[in-house]
Each structure stands twice: as C-alpha cells, then as structure tokens.
Nucleic acid binder design. Structure first.
Length: 461
RNA sequence: UCCCCGGUAGCUCAGUUGGCAGAGCGGUUGGCUGUUAACCAACUUGUCGCUGGUUCGAGUCCGGCCCGGGGAGCCA
C-alpha cells in the first residue's frame, strides 16, 4: 500500500477503509482499552490522531511506542467523534520503526525556549514552531524563483569561492588547502602562490559583481545562494553564513530598481500568506500578535520613497534625542532607521540618493556630483531588508571612483571590461533572505530562521 | 569588539543575612477516563558553568575564564 501523508489524510473528503501512514509520535494519551497517538510526518502543522484499541493486534506494539518514536500505522480513516479533528485513523496494525528512549529524548510535550531548541538544532524541526518555520522557508525560496521566472529573469549560479578580495562588503573567510602549520623541514613559509588556486581565495560575500557581468549578457538575472561574512558581529540579525537574493537588470535605473524591490517583497509576502496560512497562523498566535496586520500593510500599501536628504530632515525635525546626532553626511544608525520606519512612516521606507562618501564605489554618481543612485529598503523591526543601487556604467567615472576608494583598477579588469564593451545602464540589489523570513514570521533571532546557523564560536551540526 | 543581564535536576525557574539542595513540568509505576498541552496518586532527578581566592563554613562574597540573552557597532 502506498503511504498517505498526514496532510493528504486530513484533507480527505471521504472515509477510507485502508490507509498507510508513517510518522513520528508527538504525544500519546492512554485511556482504558484505548490509546491515542498523535502522528506528525512533517507534511503539515497538524497531527493525525491514531486510535489503537487494546483488542486489536495493533496493541501488541504499544509498550514500545513513546514520544519521538517513528511508527508505521495501517488502518481505516474514519470521521472522528472528537472535537479537535475531523478525521482519525483506527489502527489495525502498528509497527515501531525506530524507538526513542523516553529518558533521553529531549523534546517534551510542553513548550521549550528557543535558546534550548537551538542547542538541539537536529531535533527542533520536530516541534510545531520549527516545523512550520522551515516549511515557510522552503515555500518562500520557491516563491523567489517563481517571482523572477515570471518576470523573465534568468537564474545565475554565482561562484561560492572567489578570487577577488575586493568586493568591499566585509571581512571574508579564507579558503586554503595549505597546512595549518608548515611540516618540519619546509624551507620557507608557503605563500598564496603555493596554495590550491595559486592565489588567495575566499568565500563570497556577494554575487553582485558576477551578476552585473551576466546582466550585461542575459539581460535580467538573479542569484540566490549562500554568502559568507567573517565579521565578529554577535547580534540577533547577523550570521556568518546567510542566503541572499541578488537581482541585476540591464537597461534599468534606480527607479526600476526600487520598483522591483517593492514588487519582490510584496510578491513574496503575498505568496507566503496564500500558501502557508496554517503555518503562519502559529506565528501570529504565539510569536507576534501584530504579525497579520503588519504583513497586510507590507502586502497591500505602497512603500514610502524618501531621498536621503529628506530622511535627514525628518529625523532632525523629530525632536528625538538620538544617541547618534543627525546631520547630512552621516550614515543612518539603527535608531534612525527604526524611527523612520516604525514611528514616522509606520510602513516600509525606501531611502535613496545617499551621499557618495558613505556608499560603495560601484554606485552610479548622480548629476549633482554629491550623491549616488543607491537605495535601502527599511522595514519595521528588521531594519535594512534591501540594499541596492544603479551601477556606475561610465568607464571614466568608475575609474575615478576606484581611485577615490584607493582600489586598484587592475584588480577589476573584468568588471571594467563590461564598461569598455557595450556598456549599458544597469541596476540591482541584495535582499537578505533570513531577514525576510524574520519579517514574515515575527521571529526575532536570525539563528532561529536558519536550519543550522553559523555564528561566531558556533559550528555544531 | 564594547555595555548591561544571566548560567542551580532532562526542561523552566526559586533559593532570604554566607549555615541540611528546592518547586513546577518531564520521566517511571499505579489508577481513571473517546482522550485533546488529558486528569489523580506515588516514585525518580544535581560536576549549583569552569577555575582560583576569602571564610570554621560558599549556590550565595571577590578575581579570572567559558557560554547564553538583550542593546550597540559592522552589515544583509
């Protein structure tokens, strides 16, 4: 008999004489002559209630069945007389596939703290909350591909190992096959020239530069993959390994870029609202009571667009005593972002046209000569969700900007080549996938939206 | 990396002025009941983060270190 998934069984429209279900026992309640098993197989949030009658052969296996055990049940799907479920299974046969010692199985029926569950990251997806979370993560990842595919974007697999140490987006992880300490008798210290690639190699911090190259061939592209930062930053919003979505569009300007960013965030939220309703409800109920109202705002209302100079003026007029004083030329601090998005606008805000000094070399210099065509999308509670810009496509200007940042043009020969041969206006941005998931679930720690988070001093699992 | 708070049973926590190591939950056993985070009763559970010091005596006071949480910086 083919295995029926719990999701399928629970959405059944009629009773079935024979059904085969496999899953893990969430709880077991015993009554006189009857045992109630709650079976979950990960297909959905809900469990399937299985009733084992002491008079049936299925009861023989009962004394081995404890919370956490993997089981196989054959029986009949019937309408449940109980209050909390429409369908239940009356077992004819019950088989233990894998036991779970109740003395050492760490998950109990009661609620656990996120901190404790983080220490058993291999088992936490068996809880309601983390099962729901990682189903949402999976669905959201699918929605990313669907969104771009529908708009004619091509998916680019940007390299994970990079030879350019000049992406300028933070500290990098070194990739090497050289021994940690040179073996005895080694005449001189091995250098990068002796390493696997013959030069210094690192894990990528961004696929943007590669995406630009491909955008100037395939038109519209996006990358969606892991990126790495070796920053020793210990906050609930940072991880050493995280996933980024980086679209890049040819023949596009900052306006197009902001439009795409807004469409993407809105589209992903709508997709999750539509396809993950049951899982999402758990977060609305137990994690963030305001979740649904916030998501509706993000999905339905248009986002505020505000030049940097106006953002500065708003902050100065606010009358707030900020820890970091506000003046033209300063980068927006966390407290400033929160004021703009949570108090002033009460919805997502795109701030654009930043002073050139506080942004990267590759962002397109505006006609005023003072600002660059950069934009950040700030959202309540999360802060910066998107950072992007129109790229500098003019060879001369780009070379001058490299100089202003003390960068060597020869390190960027391929990047400059794109401006030499058929250069075209183009724009793109990066969206932190985990930050999106935090926004969409109300979860406040990035470690809880990554299956196996990598943070300073943490590399278990 | 900086500031603040914390680390006691499998989990969540209490522990008074320095004086016998505690509760709830979980687990086990028994009872009861088409049960629903079931219920009732009994039983079970310790490297008090590690280390050094003060003291007749330290979970409690002091130093160092490790780990966790919150905030900040860096950033997505």
């Amino acid at each position: 008999m083919r295995r029926t998934r719990v999701l399928e069984a629970l959405s059944s429209t009629q009773a079935r004489d024979a059904i085969l279900v496999k899953g893990w026992v969430r709880t077991r309640r015993d009554a006189k002559g009857l045992s109630f098993l709650e079976i979950n197989d990960g297909s959905c949030l809900k469990n399937l209630q299985v009733i084992v009658d002491a008079a049936t052969p299925a009861a023989a296996a009962l004394d081995t069945i404890t919370t956490g055990a993997a089981v196989e049940v054959e029986g009949a799907l019937v309408a449940s007389p109980g209050k909390n479920q429409q369908w239940e299974v009356h077992a004819n046969a019950l088989q233990l596939l894998g036991g779970a010692d109740p003395d050492s199985y760490p998950l109990q029926k009661k609620r656990h703290t996120d901190e404790f569950l983080r220490s058993i990251a291999h088992l936490r997806p068996r809880t309601n909350k983390y099962g729901a979370l990682f189903r949402i993560r999976s669905e959201a990842a699918f929605a990313v591909h669907q969104f771009f595919r529908q708009r004619g974007f091509h998916h680019l697999h940007a390299p994970i190992i990079t030879g350019s140490d000049c992406e300028g987006a933070g500290e990098m992880f070194r990739v090497t096959t050289l021994p940690v300490s040179p073996p005895p008798g080694t005449p001189e210290r091995a250098g990068a020239a002796d390493d696997f690639f013959g030069k210094e190699a690192n894990l990528t911090v961004s696929g943007q530069l590669e995406a630009e190259l491909f955008a100037c061939s395939l038109g519209n592209v996006y990358t969606f993959g892991p990126t790495f930062r070796a920053e020793n930053s210990n906050t609930p919003r940072h991880a050493a390994e995280f996933w980024m979505i980086e679209p890049e569009m040819a023949f596009a300007d900052l306006q197009d870029d902001m439009d795409l960013g807004e469409d993407l965030v809105r589209g992903l939220v709508n997709h999750v609202l539509e396809h993950c309703a049951a899982d999402l409800e758990l977060f609305a109920r137990f994690v963030d009571p305001d979740l649904m109202a916030n998501l509706r705002t993000i999905a339905e209302e248009s986002y505020v667009r505000m030049p940097y100079t106006e953002a500065i003026a708003v902050l100065q007029r606010s009358g707030k005593a900020f820890q970091f004083p506000v003046a033209y030329g300063v980068d927006l601090q966390t407290e400033h972002e929160r004021y703009l998005t949570e108090e002033h606008c009460k919805k997502p805000v795109m701030v654009y046209n930043y002073p050139k000094e506080i942004k990267s070399f590759y962002m397109r210099l505006n006609d005023d000569g003072q600002t660059v065509a950069a934009m950040d999308l700030l959202v309540p509670r999360i802060g910066e969700l998107i950072g992007g810009s129109q790229r500098e496509e003019r060879l001369g200007v780009l070379e001058r900007r490299l100089g202003e940042f003390d960068l060597r043009p020869q390190d960027y020969w391929w990047y400059l080549d794109i401006r030499r041969f058929g250069t075209a206006p183009h724009a793109g941005f990066g969206l932190g996938f985990e930050r999106f998931l935090m926004m969409v679930t109300g979860v406040t720690n990035i470690r809880d939206v990554i299956p196996f988070p990598r943070t300073p001093k943490h590399l278990e699992f």
